[in-house]
């Protein structure tokens, strides 16, 4: 272990000393992250509002919501196991039958916790 790492560890042991400290460079980096995040969040709608959207492009935009949801879910579930797949199935069925998102979420999360304990 090098000297500088030891100093770092010692500093961590008394975290409340610097709890309210704001390093100017750290603040600048955080603001830069905030700016690019706002650009990312608003950029898409900004563009769509500027350009003239043809019927053809509109047809593409119409399928975006479902496509994004599937694109987020697919790899997430592929990386999961039987417990996650079972939980997803529970959400699907409860949502389909009751149309209540809160009920579906509670049932799904409870099912995952239960399945993980068993599997």
């Amino acid at each position: 272990m090098t000297g500088s790492e030891t100093v770092g560890l010692l500093a961590l042991e008394t975290p409340f000393d610097g709890a309210l400290s704001l390093d100017p460079l750290v603040v600048a980096v955080i603001f830069a992250m905030a700016v690019v995040t706002v650009v990312a969040k608003t950029g898409g709608i900004w563009l769509v509002r500027r350009v003239d959207v043809s019927d053809r492009v509109q047809a593409g935009l119409d399928v975006l919501p479902g496509a994004i949801v599937i694109a987020i879910l697919g790899p997430e579930l592929a990386a999961g196991g039987p417990a996650e797949w079972g939980g997803a199935a529970v959400v699907l069925v409860v949502m389909w039958r009751t149309k209540s998102i809160l009920l579906a979420l509670c049932a799904g999360v409870a099912a995952v916790v239960a399945f993980r304990a068993v599997v």
Partner: peptide, 12 residues
Amino acid sequence: FILVAVFVALVV
């Protein structure tokens, strides 16, 4: 699992 569950519900 909450985020996955929200999106599965949205699929329906």
